[in-house]
Design a protein around this nucleic acid. Structure first.
Lengths: 134, 134
DNA sequence: TCGCAGATGCGAATGAATCTCAGGAACGCG
DNA sequence: CGCGTTCCTGAGATTCATTCGCATCTGCGA
């Protein structure tokens, strides 16, 4: 994704564009992926950017609030930010901590249970934990 | 579950029984439920127990290592410990943070995707996020 | 009774995430 | 072009859950 389309993308979500936001967006939206705030910061730094850690966190929070990225709670130790925002499923490698997407059409859930009274469904997510074969 | 059977339960999992461990086990294994370490500590305190916070954490870690309880990573802010250890599914109320079980027979997953090369499946978990109806 | 292994509990350390706040840049308006 | 308002940034401090380090304690076997 180019810097230009990145700018449109930000606007489309009602986020005013700033250099730092564009930099963060470029890293995370570059391609479908799952990154922690720390990893994003590293990549920015290795690209020569000098954004502060706080700005990275603030920006990611902002992005996830307005639907640009999705927060994932899978690893007990940190959040991941997913550039694929529609509901989809994941493999989680318990040994390496790696996360990968499951192609949408490869999981079919047949029956869903009735929701607790007075609630509506927000999302359904399937997590498949895997480990290396022994 | 009585204190006696609790003791057996600990032994069965290769955990030597100590008063504190029995107290923690009594709270969490009492019935199927999801509690955070903090909630467990509260309950112990309100029962007049004087175990330290560190011991509660250490004990829960020990229990989950040996399969007595299951750690759940659902809420970004804390872990939950589940007294139901076999793989099963959950509702997560995003507003209240409440977790509840989905009866096993009410979700049917039809097709599972091929696992990444060289890996084997450890578990499949479905999480349904719900919120109050508007 | 002695000694040891294992358990306990306190405080300090860790690490992710958030908050504070002051300095700056961008923008609209006259 | 100048001014004030508003919003953004980033360094450090803070919070909060969790874990670690370590000195102390306990119970059991010899």
């Amino acid at each position: 994704m180019s810097a230009i389309s990145m700018l449109d993308e930000l606007k489309r979500h009602g986020v005013s564009a700033t250099p730092q936001r564009i930099e963060v967006a470029t890293v995370i939206l570059e391609r479908p992926q799952h990154l922690s705030a720390e990893q994003i910061l590293e990549r920015l730094r290795s690209k020569g950017s000098r954004v502060s850690k706080a700005t990275v966190y603030n920006t990611l929070k902002l992005f996830s609030d307005c639907g640009l990225v999705k927060e994932l709670t899978v690893d007990p130790n940190r959040k991941f930010y997913d550039s694929t925002t529609h509901a989809h499923h994941h493999f989680y490698h318990v040994e390496t901590g790696e996360l990968s997407d499951i192609p949408e059409d490869q999981v079919e859930i047949m029956s869903l249970p009735p929701l607790p009274a007075g609630t509506e469904q927000e999302s359904v997510e399937v997590l498949i934990r895997v480990r290396d074969c022994r």
